[in-house]
Design a protein around this nucleic acid. Structure first.
Length: 476
RNA sequence: GCUCCCAUCGUCUAGCCCGGUCUAGGACAUCGCCUUUUCACGGCGGUAACAGGGGUUCGAAUCCCCUUGGGAGUACCA
């Protein structure tokens, strides 16, 4: 039997990093098992679902490189993949359930239900449906419906315990009486999550359900439904939750929680996947930097952590930095086109210049946008007047260096040179050492201060050849 | 309230299933040193954890029980 997994988001907002992690796990599992990964849109909550969110989420998933084999936009043999387009299917199966005596029409009003619930809570009882409509005869129900009475469909919850084996939690037991008869079709004709989830997973031939732990209690209702349909349930694996600094389920108040925000901040999609993957799963070789393709054949549900994982921005940044460092010149240039603003002087330089520049700074940044600040420094004509620089300028040797370099740069500039080369810098250094008799700290720091206008930065022999000579002249 | 789930450095985790090799390993962060006549990168090293209590056992991070703490769910949301 080939593995079939799915990620089933509801289009009620942006793609959350928790959702991205779940999607990633499903995708990785499919890839590792040579299976199929399906995207299903759960849009039965009409009030909150929006088409634009669906598109946004698909775009974010695509950006992360998590591409589905079947889904609303690419089709597939078990469509439609949007629940709002599967309404007749849910209806038919609900009717079958009624025929088989597993479900019934319920005419209780929301107000009535709410009142009963309140009483139950006050009497500290578990608020469960009391089964008021359970014994209404089918014919009577039909009559009430045809005369316009709004009805929902309730499933008769069996009174027994349920046990299943979870890929992460092992043996999970739900004791008897945890849930009362629950609604599967709302009175407005739309199905309820736990119900359509079962229908879809069954009809789409899903073999493994990998989802967040918050769904664990839902599994009980779903197990009941599978049983009523006489269908073997899929394998379940409930992955630990993602939590924030306060140990609560990760949500908007913890800062950037949507994938799009990280995309915007120039994080690399591979780095995001890498980090997200490590939040609750561990590599058997204790490797911590990898690409999705490295995980084929390695990823499996045996190495999930049961406890919740805290999202740590600092480590994400480190992982992102590691991915940048591992990039070669071509990859860097490609990404630079994407992330460095079009008005940056970066884009006006030669390819050779760009390669050298990116290579020079790639080991000291955490994310791509950091390149911008370094590039801005190269092209900055201003001289930073901080304490250290004032000190450098106060040395009696510094004016000599300035005078010498000023003349040298003018000479080169007048002869049409636009960039100084490394050789030239060595010659300057030798001259200052030999003729001006300046050496050690005054020599190097003096040159740095005079040429860059700053007290720190990369090695001069790499940095100066990247700086246009006219800018050097201006600074001096 | 009720039901379910969870518990190793500040954080992510290895080890747990199949007790001894664990004076508990790695990574992020942090601190120190080296390297770099700067900053970073890099290298080396330090601080830092088996929630508590009972069992079982010659021996427990590992198996069992209790306590405590944390989390999730409790909808005609997903």
């Amino acid at each position: 039997m080939t593995v079939r997994v799915r990620f089933a988001p509801s289009p009620t907002g942006y793609l959350h990093i928790g959702g991205a992690r779940t999607a990633l796990y499903n995708y990785l599992f499919a890839k590792s098992k040579g299976g199929t990964y399906i995207l299903r849109i759960e849009d039965t909550d009409l009030e909150r679902s929006k088409k634009e969110y669906e598109e946004l989420q698909i775009a974010d998933l695509k950006w992360l490189g998590i591409e589905h084999n079947e889904g609303p936009d690419v089709g597939g043999p078990y469509g439609p993949y949007r629940q709002s387009e599967r309404l007749p299917i849910y209806k038919t199966h609900a009717e079958k359930l009624i025929e088989k005596g597993h479900a019934y029409y319920c005419f209780c009003t929301p107000e009535e239900l709410e009142a009963k619930k309140e009483i139950a809570v006050r009497e500290s009882r578990v608020p469960q449906y009391d089964g008021k409509c359970r014994n209404i005869k089918f014919e009577e129900a039909q009559n009430r419906i045809s005369s316009g009475g709004p009805a929902s469909i309730r499933f008769k919850a069996p009174h027994k315990a349920y046990v299943f084996m979870d890929g992460v939690r092992d043996r999970v037991v739900f004791p008897e009486g945890m849930v009362g008869d629950f609604v599967i079709m709302r009175s407005n004709g739309l199905p309820v999550y736990n119900y359509c989830c079962v229908i879809d997973d069954w009809l789409m031939k899903i073999t493994h359900v990998i989802r967040a732990e918050e769904h664990l209690p839902n599994t009980l209702r779903q197990l009941m439904l599978y049983e009523a349909f006489e269908v073997r349930p899929p394998e379940f694996a409930h992955v630990s939750l993602l939590i924030g600094k306060d140990r609560q389920k990760l949500s908007k108040r913890h800062g950037a929680t949507s994938v799009a925000q990280y995309k915007e901040e120039s994080y690399l999609p591979e780095a995001m996947c890498n980090y997200l993957c490590l939040l609750g799963w561990s590599h058997p070789g204790e490797v911590d930097i990898f690409k999705k393709t490295d995980l084929v054949g390695v990823f499996g549900i045996e190495r999930f952590q049961k406890a919740a994982a805290m999202f740590d921005l600092e480590k994400l940044q480190w992982v992102n930095g590691q991915h940048i460092k591992a990039m070669n010149a071509q990859e860097l240039i490609l990404k630079a086109k994407e992330f460095i603003p079009t008005d940056s002087p970066f884009h006006r330089q030669s390819v050779e210049w760009q390669e050298k520049c990116l290579d020079l700074f790639k080991s000291q940044i955490h994310f791509f946008k950091d390149f911008e600040t370094h590039i801005a420094e190269i092209f900055s004509r201003e001289v930073v007047e901080n304490e250290k620089l004032v000190e450098i300028n106060s040395w009696e040797t510094t004016p000599q260096i300035r005078q010498y370099l000023k003349e040298e740069i003018k000479k080169l500039k007048d002869s049409g040179v636009t960039f100084v080369n490394e050789l030239q810098i060595n010659q300057w250094t030798e001259h200052i050492k030999g003729e001006l008799k300046i050496k050690g700290k005054p020599l190097f720091m003096g040159m740095r201060g005079v040429l860059t206008g700053r007290d720190h930065g990369p090695e001069l022999k790499f940095l100066i050849p990247l700086t246009p000579i006219e800018i050097l002249a201006d600074r001096i």
